[in-house]
Amino acid sequence: MSKNNNDFVTIYVMGKKQKVPADLTIMKAMEYAGHQFIRGSGCRGGFCGACATVYRMRGSYKLQGALACQKQVEEGMIIAQIPFSPSEKITYKLNEIKANANTFLEYFPEIARCLSCNTCTKACPQDIMVMDYVQAALRGDIKLAAKLSFDCLGCGLCAMRCPAEIVPYNIGQLARRLESKYIEGPTEQVLSRCEEIKEGKYDKEIESLKNADKETLIKLYNSREMKNE
């Protein structure tokens, strides 16, 4: 790997100056600079939301959010990882709760503190209209809250920045659960797949996977097919 100086950028990882190849993601750049991820890294594909990161560009006041595995490094990035956003896991039994107008307030009364300041939306690396879905939840609009929050990965950046101390991603999750259970209902595919599972269609395959050794599993994983349906 030979790179000339132009292919490198200077970034600041938690204040420490680093020269890293310009074509790397934040995550890979940090690893290049010697950081090891114990937390704050998961799927590395932009789906799990584990690698929430905040950064500022030199010369700009803006605090921006990104997923470290998705965002490419840029010259002058000042980076810090937010490996976890502290929030209580609210438990509810989906079969028992109701999709009422006040359901959100019952489980997350703090949404009434929302200032509509839109900081959450600004922080979201997924470009979700977070404030709009929190507001939809406040007025009991489950469908809209579910729709707007659909792309949420639960990275937690919105929750870290909210001045009203709301945890938006928990609210979006409840909205989507209520919507799929009580408004949309399960799709045909889900129902037919459940039927197949019950009938034991996949029992043999699962058994063979359970008995497979590590080598075989790695091989299978790497050659897996993803269907786009």
Binding site: S116, N118, R139
Partner: peptide, 25 residues
């Protein structure tokens, strides 16, 4: 099509800006 809670109460303190964002939006 889009709207948010107005905040229900007018922010009375003179230095308050944050609480005006909701109604102005």
């Amino acid at each position: 099509e889009r709207w948010n809670c107005c905040g229900t109460v007018h922010a009375l303190s003179k230095d308050d800006v944050m609480h005006h964002l909701a109604p102005i939006r």
